[in-house]
Design a protein around this nucleic acid. Sequence first.
DNA 1: AATGAATGAGAATTCATTCAT
DNA 2: AATGAATGAATTCTCATTCAT
Lengths: 214, 214, 214, 214
Amino acid sequence: MAYRRTANVISRMRDNRSKILAAALDMVAEGGWQNAQMARVARRAGVSVGSVYRYFPSKAALFSEVLATVSTRETGVLAQIAETNAKPAFRLRRALSTFVSRALQGRRMAYAMIAEPCEPGIDATKVEWRRKLSETFLKIVEDGQRTGDFYSGDPLTATACLAGALMEPLAGPLAPTEELDEVRVRALSHEITETCMRLVCTPDAACEVEEKEQ
Amino acid sequence: MAYRRTANVISRMRDNRSKILAAALDMVAEGGWQNAQMARVARRAGVSVGSVYRYFPSKAALFSEVLATVSTRETGVLAQIAETNAKPAFRLRRALSTFVSRALQGRRMAYAMIAEPCEPGIDATKVEWRRKLSETFLKIVEDGQRTGDFYSGDPLTATACLAGALMEPLAGPLAPTEELDEVRVRALSHEITETCMRLVCTPDAACEVEEKEQ
Amino acid sequence: MAYRRTANVISRMRDNRSKILAAALDMVAEGGWQNAQMARVARRAGVSVGSVYRYFPSKAALFSEVLATVSTRETGVLAQIAETNAKPAFRLRRALSTFVSRALQGRRMAYAMIAEPCEPGIDATKVEWRRKLSETFLKIVEDGQRTGDFYSGDPLTATACLAGALMEPLAGPLAPTEELDEVRVRALSHEITETCMRLVCTPDAACEVEEKEQ
Amino acid sequence: MAYRRTANVISRMRDNRSKILAAALDMVAEGGWQNAQMARVARRAGVSVGSVYRYFPSKAALFSEVLATVSTRETGVLAQIAETNAKPAFRLRRALSTFVSRALQGRRMAYAMIAEPCEPGIDATKVEWRRKLSETFLKIVEDGQRTGDFYSGDPLTATACLAGALMEPLAGPLAPTEELDEVRVRALSHEITETCMRLVCTPDAACEVEEKEQ
DNA sequence: AATGAATGAGAATTCATTCAT
DNA sequence: AATGAATGAATTCTCATTCAT
């Protein structure tokens, strides 16, 4: 009995923690960082404000975790691509276009992650997320440098540039006010991907891949 | 007499407006957007809160102007480089490394301009600053495409990528917590510049320039 | 246990809301709309400013409710009289004199309700109060028109005129600066009532009633 | 020379005072009491803020005078009617309908004078204006009582009631949000006038007059 | 007499966090 | 463990009035 009760309590706790985190994530996904007040999160999660503070020591901690969650999800998708055995240029192109496509879907959240100002306290985690995103490209870049398909040079700088070059041209189009049709999305996606490719990939290697893709 | 009186009043007014703007700019340069409260700005400028509102209709307006001032200053420097008659690749390399160097000096301000979240009301101007920065590279990129030194493709995407690739690898090092020595600054500067070059510039054209530079 | 706890909390909440409302009402009753600052209300109610905002979304909302409370109280008294089975003229006279008497007691509040300017945000409710006051007379007037004791004509205009004719001669005497003795109060009350009677009631019907009253 | 200079100065002073007063009046006539800030008045009058304070010791003083000006203008029109030799009931009806018509033209100003909350400091003058309006009817009422056309009773109360009965039903229709067409204006005007007549005028006397008017 | 820049007290409102129950 | 009422510091913005020039 005692054991089961404990188990229930723990699982209820897990539940609450998850519910709160999910609620917070949803709010950001819908209204960005501005939407994010502790009381609202609590209400949305169906718990009290006090409970939010039981599981998260502060607002910054909660939303940092939200950011980290999304960060992990997105970099996870890219990491899978990075671990393939395909040619580095192929993997890179795939990773880049995947990032752009996913951003242009979940737009509001992507905007929050990429361009929207957030609470100063969450800031550090945002930097971390950008670092992680860079890192995701690291394996691909290193592989490419090894095969000679990619330029040599400090791979950390290269990947950071990659991340920036990927996000910056998205900032405008992701803005909540912007209207995006299917055609524009495709064009944007292609253009950004190809431009970013050049950042690390020699023209020859890049071309070769394109042929293979077809 | 009347003339001088008027002149004095006007110059005092100019003074005050400038003093307020300068104070606001200094505060951002020292403590980022977080430092930015109207009352503090007033005190620092040596005027009353009301006077701040005489010259700037709102907090957002004041700090937008701060942002615009820095933006104009920085893009101005780059624009001068862009208008040179040198080879596009040369101009580009010069512009890129100038941007990085200047950022790594005024670090706190650069961090505010590049990575730190700001008030939503100021955000619009921040977007504008990023757009202007992209635009600064536009002339160079178009020239380079014309001469064939640069890759073809949508120049607007290319310049946005350029801006992102330039700023992103700076975000980490600029963070107020980071320690930077002379050596690291140089390495960083060189590495970022060369990586960004590749985004738009064919390897041949890029090399050629390097020789010329020496 | 749990039940009692909940009950206590709820009753405490009711208490606080009431305390705040009561405090706000008292302040108006003592110093009119000028006395009405959120911080002062909070202090007087013995709660924090934040608590005031927990129960009332804005200053306008709080004081609108104050106004509505008084409005309901006063029109309630009159409505009871209106629903009597007595002759319309009798009911009307009774309602009018009751209104005047009550106003000449709670003078400061009556002044606030009748003559003192209030914040524009509260104004809508003040208009509503005047409308309600008119409406209170509506049943009596319609009954009187049916029995032929009252003049015919648009009853809505008649009741509005009635309300105005009732309040206007009170505005001066209610002014906080004015001194009122018992005699003057009586005379005023009688005079106003009888004058207002004539607005809707034919002389014959009015007289008849007077006899009955004695 | 000196004399003429003085004369000029004085006339310029008169000019300025008038200009300021006129500007203030216009502002109220256009946007009500809310529109009324000293700086705006100054700008509109084409003088400096300081000059406004040269001629009017305070905001309350300025706008009290605005109120008094309009008050005088309106009561003046009514006073002329009151001084006629026509039958009291005729004069009264004429005065009442004139008041209503004029109000339904200059609506914004009428709203400010009758229904809109104003600055507390102007309050006293507003009471005064209402008193003056009452007083305007005094001569007519006294004449009517003398001829026996009007009911007897305290004429001061009667006239105050008259003023209230006249203004109250106007408060709603004058609201800046309300739409008024020609038909409604006529109906309103007639209804209010006739209802107010009954306040002081016996039915017989009132009828007689109507015939004469035709 | 005129100017208008400067003043600064005040007022409303927000929301992360705490803690008694 | 859960609740959610209470807290109150912090911040922006307004505008009548003053006074040096």
